[in-house]
Design a binder for these strands. Structure first.
Lengths: 156, 156
DNA sequence: GAACGTAATGTTATAGTATAACAATAGTCA
DNA sequence: TGACTATTGTTATACTATAACATTACGTTC
């Protein structure tokens, strides 16, 4: 699932919640209503969503909420690999395959604003190698590509 | 020059200013005192520097300055490839080789906070190719790696 | 199931990053 | 010189994120 393809999006959300429940059960973590709700909201689309956008919705739904409410939920979801942060946008997207730790690359369409996640270990490895050549031990990679997705490209 | 190696740093600043002057002359752009000063300040070290950190210094030196003062100078320098923005840090570093447009990769040492710039076209190309496989036309890549530089690594 | 300890959330305040909008000034060129 | 444009000044505000402490909910032990 690239995020750019047509698909039944409701199943994306459902699957994400299911995966999160399974993962939290496995790790003995609490998947609270707030955390679940924030995860669902992040998954409303394949577009990155800002923390304050989430906050507005959570406020509407709960009648109360302050930035820490949503930032803490986001932190939990990030820590457990259930969502990703898009650094170039200061926003968050659901993770496509939250099972284990993985290095991801993001394709950000500047036209429709959707984001797709790649998981190309060869790229990650090559980056680690080149860094090592410079005497650098890599810990974490952030790779974000902006451009135009297939749907938004000029029909040729 | 990796930014991690020992070097005469004054020449880094001098070279950066010279390169900027040449580039601006070539393109018919105005390398104003403010722009030059901000470039010099960004080059004070190989560590990324925040906009408000620059602002404080500029304020001291000119007696007046507001955020737009420094942000506009930074924007000019960014547009012309004289500096880079480190997205994961919301901060700015000088560009090692501001001649032409290029894709850069950044190695960010979490210990000493210095940043080195790679310019590995093979990585950039591989990323473009994999993106293209997903039907995505790449325009710009952001690649930032955190880890430990040689100087900060445990002596083994 | 009562008491305790811990994790999660609530609440208030503030820090940090960035831009909009309009005014004033400086440089350029006919 | 005068008109035009680019640059900088100035004020206000938007957006993003966290610190610090209070309260509530949960889980465990006895």
């Amino acid at each position: 699932m690239s995020g750019f393809e047509n698909h039944d999006h409701r199943s994306c959300i459902r699957d994400a919640v299911q995966a999160a429940k399974a993962l939290c059960a496995e790790r003995g973590l609490r998947f609270t209503p707030l955390r679940q709700r924030v995860l669902e909201l992040v998954w409303q689309s394949h577009r990155p969503v800002g923390a304050y956008e989430l906050l507005d919705i959570v406020k509407d739904e709960r009648g109360r909420a302050a930035p820490p409410t949503v930032y803490r939920a986001l932190e939990f979801l990030l820590e457990n690999g259930l969502i990703h942060r898009i650094e170039t946008l200061n926003a968050f997207v659901g993770c496509d395959h939250p099972a284990g730790p993985h290095t991801a690359q993001f394709l950000i369409c500047t036209s429709c604003r959707r984001v797709a996640e790649l998981s190309d270990d060869a790229i990650a490895k090559r980056v680690r190698t080149r860094a090592a050549d410079a005497g650098f031990r890599s810990e974490h990679q952030t790779l974000e590509v902006t451009g135009t997705c297939e749907d938004c490209a000029e029909p040729s």
